Simulated scan of single mutants.
Amino acid sequence: MAVGKSVIGAELARVLGLSFVDSDHKIVAKHGPIPRIFAAKGEHHFRQLEAKAIADVLDAPAPAPVVLSLGGGAVLDSGTQQLLARTTVVFLRAELDTVRERITRNTGRPLLAADPVATWERLAAVRGPVYARLADITLDVGNSNVPQLVERLIHLLETESRKENS
């Protein structure tokens, strides 16, 4: 959460000439703002919408290559985990110091509304190990700008592809 998935993913897709899909944007386009979904129907309902949005992309017949940015909690869904096992997963890892400013000034994150820093730490402690287990590539996003991160990520993706093909 707040590690730059959407920005880095969009730039990676642009550089590679691929489509970019953000699962949160798909949900918003179809169901309205995420804070309103949380307020009206709760997190569980949002997670169901999220899993469906992700499955629509990853479980399509003959899916085209795409860069997909997932919402931070998406990996907690077992169905999503099964779909992710069939593709290359990148874990963008960040320390609290890297995201502190973003999470304290962004009011559009329902789960961080009460105490952003403590909540982010709690969520990272739960989600981090799941991402680490699912990830083919882990990229630390601290102390780098988006072009540097995308360049490093492309190198890691090429290395991963060579390993898979050998």
Rank of each mutant, 00 (worst) to 15 (best):
R36L: 15
Q82D: 15
V90L: 05
A29Q: 13
G79H: 13
G108P: 07
G73W: 07
P35T: 15
N106W: 05
A114W: 12
E101W: 09
D77F: 08
G108C: 15
E50M: 03
H44S: 12
P116I: 09
E101P: 09
V66L: 03
L68Y: 06
V66E: 01
A94N: 09
K26C: 03
T80M: 02
T80Y: 00
V117Y: 15
G72H: 11
T80R: 01
K52N: 00
F46A: 01
S19Y: 03
A113V: 11
K30I: 02
K52Y: 01
L111C: 13
D97T: 10
P110R: 14
I27D: 06
S78R: 11
A39E: 14
H45S: 11
D24Q: 13
V21L: 05
P33E: 15
L76P: 06
A39F: 09
L83D: 03
G108A: 15
Q82H: 15
P116T: 05
R47I: 09
N106I: 03
K30C: 02
R93S: 14
V117S: 09
V75N: 01
P33S: 15
V89T: 11
H45L: 05
V28T: 14
R102Y: 09
T88H: 10
E95A: 14
G71E: 03
A64P: 06
V57R: 00
V90H: 09
T98H: 06
V75H: 05
H31K: 14
S78V: 12
K26W: 07
P61Y: 07
V67M: 12
I54T: 02
A118C: 10
V66S: 02
P116C: 04
V117L: 09
D115C: 11
G73S: 11
L112S: 03
A64C: 05
Q81W: 10
D24R: 09
